[in-house]
Design a protein around this nucleic acid. Sequence first.
RNA 1: GCGCCCGUAGCUCAGCUGGAUAGAGCAUCGGACUUCUAAUCCGACGGUCGGGGGUUCGAAUCCUCCCGGGCGCGCCA
Length: 572
Amino acid sequence: MPTPPSSHQGNGLDAFATRIRQSLAEASSLTVDAILLERPRQELHGEFAFPCFRFAKAAGKNPAELASALASTLQIEDVELTAVGPFLNFSIHPSALAQVVLASTLRDDFGCAQENLTTIVEFSSPNIAKPMHVGHMRTTVIGAALSRIFQRLGHKVIRINHLGDWGSQFGKLVAAWQRWGSEEALEASPIAHLLELYVHFHKEAETDPSLAEEAKRAFQELESGEDNLTRATWKRFTELSLREFQRVYDRFGITFDYVRGESWYENQLQDVLAWLEGCGVLEEDDGAFIIDLSEEGIKTPCLVKTTHGTTLYATRDIAAAKSRWEEFHFDQMLYVVGAEQTLHFQQFKAALKKCGASWQERMEHIPFGLIRLTEGKLSTREGRVISLSEVLDRAVDLAQKAVEEKNPELADKKKVAEMVGVGAVVFHDLKHQRQKDVIFNWQEVLSFEGDTGPYLQYTHARCCSILRKAERPIPSFSAIQPELVQDGRDLFVAMGRLPQAIRDAGQKREPMILAQALLRIGAAGNAFYREHRVLGTGDEELEKARLATIDALRRTLALGLELLGVPVPEEM
RNA sequence: GCGCCCGUAGCUCAGCUGGAUAGAGCAUCGGACUUCUAAUCCGACGGUCGGGGGUUCGAAUCCUCCCGGGCGCGCCA
């Protein structure tokens, strides 16, 4: 009965990488940390590679000679060394590979780490009274995925939805409501009606200057902090909007620890202005107050108070950051916000730095590229929008048709269609590098074949199906002979690399790294069960070992998909 | 004008701190379902890595200039 050595248990290929690096460190003057292994370009070269160029240079030797010398001297348990030119390649013994990867993937702490940081993730943050469109999808989906990834890595994660529920636009909205608002329309479809009012306001304001005055007055009333009609109206808009947003969050399966809009920091704004004043960074300029940042290399000053005495985005962000620092003492605070706001984050970080708030170094803007339409940038006012619920609805409709066609016997087709549709949309967003702009393309978002969410969901469902049809308990690790599945090399390597992918995804704040790793697992998994029949081979031990492998695949996919926020159906 | 981001196969994208013959998916073409779900698998086709120069034993990756696209540049957020 093989039992894995304890050092092998935790995390896939880590055990081997550690062993190889230690061995190389002993053979050289380098520290373990300085030895970075690479992944060979070609699979036949093994699982890890060490290019000897730098090492050889330091030792004054020829890289190829050094590689072959090391290959013949070093001995590493379960690892075969081969020198190919200047490269030293490491191939893990197939049965050790199967054993170690199976043991670790079958554990509940697979892919975990103990980074022990307190991490705040601010994401989603839609604007009250405006519909959530595809543009809000990225921050929502990326932020939620990063939060789960950090959680897996052992962070204490605090998710904050920083609603855009404050600012001069609410003055406009209240003014518009007082003139043209309809109680019935608001009840029927709150956000749609509020948007209508907002658009109407902008149109009328072009010819009617008194509107701008009313709007300004309304926002001043709001900022006064008094319990007046304006405030009551604003509060109602907020609640109605939030109720609609919640429906989208429910579909994505997203929760927040704090839904704190900008208004939450409202009563701290005067203190913050006083604090800035006390720090001696405030300057008056044309009746407004600014913080000059030229010494920080930023030409545009940070404006914190208008000539009308109202606060701005930056003022509220400074207040929010300060308040969160005092409340949570975070190790890192990530703002998942579009790349177009880069300057704003540079500005308010620099402003904090100028005030001596050294903790501002822990704040990090996580920018992402714009979603654009072929016709141009999204614009609520110009009607170039695709609502988020429409995207989800269309994806789910299409998934429904696919289920109907491919698996008409399925019990809960509606539920599965929802999972597949949402999964397709979420995965599509997360499989690209965040920084790149994306041109929204229905055909691509609604694709269920190839490198897609449904492909991975399908692979998972197939595993579940095999395990179901086995009609026996899933064999535990201690009950199988791993060497019987040593021909599943590609699959074990792909699964064994998942912990590293989770760590990289966290470190680079890039869920795509995890998505790509999952696609490799999916491809290897599909090839595996295609080539290796699990049930009905007539070989009891082989069936047990293959069942355990399918179980490992199922668990690994489920783990990765859950981290990304892609639903995990057991049938489809 | 200044600043930031992007430019890899027909299309959408990977390519980790510079390393071995630049990889996937879609599309196209050709194979594989009496066998655990063909939302799959196997194969073929397809690239002067936007362009020039530089650093290096080695550059898609780093530096520089140019071209093309996007975003931003105090009283919106």
